Amino acid sequence: MKSIINNRIQIVVHISIWILFYGLTFYPVLNDTRPIPSDVFPKLIVIIVLFYFNYFYLVPEYLLKKTVLFYLFLSLGLLIFSVYLLNHFFPPRIPDNFFIQQERPRGLGFMPFYRTFVNLGIPYVISAILRMYVEWKRNENLRLSVEKENIKSELQFLKAQLNPHFLFNSLNTIYALSVKKSPDTSEAIVDLSELMRYMIYEADKDLVPLNKELDYIKSYIQLQRLRLSDSENVSLKITGEDRGRAVPPLLFISFIENAFKYGTDYKGKTYVKISLIITDASIYLNVKNKIGIFREPTKNSGIGLENIRNQLELIYPGLHNLEVSNDGQDYEVSLTIYQKQSSL
């Protein structure tokens, strides 16, 4: 569809160029009710032939392939040859009494050649500029398309890493419940199935409704509450209107998951405070947790946070602010995402 629109735009541009050129050519003649010079129509035919020969062949074959010097000599020779043919077969006629009152100026014999060269040269140069712009625009669109595909592929790769990481942690939660023979184990399995359904059917999209992402976060927190022996200090506060807003799927979960992972001490007491503020201009997420008992970091322990950092750079370049603080007792993440044009 985009290529059809671009082709139509090019057709309109070409038609506009010829309307403008023909208008400038015939306006003085029609305005002064003078007879049309005999060489006008042959000259216009040669201009059109040179214009499109240059546009479709010379520029792509020589100028765009960096053989600039050869292209310039070839173009100059072609223009001079065309001027010679036009002036030889269709010489401009000057009225016999044109120089009765004045002397014939010197160099008059050269003037018709000069005027014809200028008349042919200007459209010729315009055709080169127009074709170079079209090629530049096409290459720019191709570059943007490739860049977009690369970003999309990288995001898919990041999500492929994130999903198994999330599943691993969730299964650990259910395993902990089963070891304790908790009656909440079946409920946890149902919650996990709902989370997995969201990840399978929604997480492959570029954007999802914000309210669905919030439901996903609520389900995840509920699953974590079932695992914890003390969840009194676990809170989620959401303010603002979420309808009509959209975000990339799984955008916030890594920060929340990390808070639960490191915000629980060896006694099972957890301190995790999650606040999400939605305004017309931005979405603000704050996640704060007490740092529990020291754990030896593993090779993959930071994969979720690292992935979400990369996603933010890819999706919101220059449109987000991420701050992380760690004073040894509290770990806090503050993320602000500024409103983009796309929404659901």
Rank of each mutant, 00 (worst) to 15 (best):
L214Y: 08
I48L: 13
L79C: 02
V247N: 03
I283G: 02
D330V: 05
E257G: 15
P112C: 09
S153K: 14
F166C: 06
V333I: 15
Y124A: 14
I17D: 05
T264S: 05
L192N: 12
L69Q: 08
R93L: 03
R8Q: 10
G109L: 02
N7L: 01
A188R: 12
I293P: 09
L322E: 14
Y271L: 07
Y220Q: 04
S3Y: 12
Q224V: 01
T270F: 01
K261F: 05
V179F: 02
V134Y: 09
R104M: 09
K288R: 15
I274D: 03
L162A: 13
F113K: 08
G109Y: 07
I151Q: 06
L74H: 05
A281C: 06
S235P: 10
Q341T: 13
Q101W: 04
S343W: 01
S193N: 09
V134K: 02
N169E: 11
S82D: 04
Y133D: 11
D327W: 05
K180N: 15
G268E: 03
G23A: 04
Y284H: 15
K66H: 01
L228N: 07
P95Q: 04
N307L: 06
D191A: 11
P317N: 14
M132Q: 14
Q339A: 12
S178N: 15
G263E: 09
F294I: 08
Y266D: 14
F26R: 01
L344D: 10
S170P: 02
M199V: 09
E257S: 13
R106E: 07
Y201H: 13
L76Y: 00
N87C: 09
S127Q: 05
K218H: 02
V190W: 04
F90T: 08
N300S: 15
L24H: 10
Y27P: 01
V287E: 03
S282C: 01
E313C: 07
I129V: 15
P209K: 10
P183E: 11
L314H: 12
S75L: 12
L76S: 07
N119L: 03
S229A: 04
T116G: 02
F255L: 11
D96L: 06
G244K: 06
L335S: 04
F81N: 04
S16R: 05
N286D: 11
D242W: 04
I100D: 13
L214P: 03
V179W: 01
P112N: 06
K148L: 06
N300I: 07
I48F: 10
E140Q: 14
T336R: 09
G263F: 01
T173Y: 11
S170L: 10
D191M: 07
W136D: 08
I174F: 01
A259D: 07
Y284N: 14
G23T: 01
I9E: 00
S3P: 02
I277G: 05
A246Q: 05
S127H: 05
I122E: 10
Y220P: 04
P42L: 06
I315T: 13
T264R: 10
L85G: 00
I47F: 00
L158M: 12
I315Y: 08
W18Q: 10
S178D: 15
Y27L: 09
F53H: 01
M132V: 12
T239E: 12
L276T: 10
K261T: 12
Y71M: 03
G244V: 03
N233K: 13
N326G: 08
Q329W: 00
R197G: 10
L207F: 11
N326T: 10
L24V: 05
L158P: 02
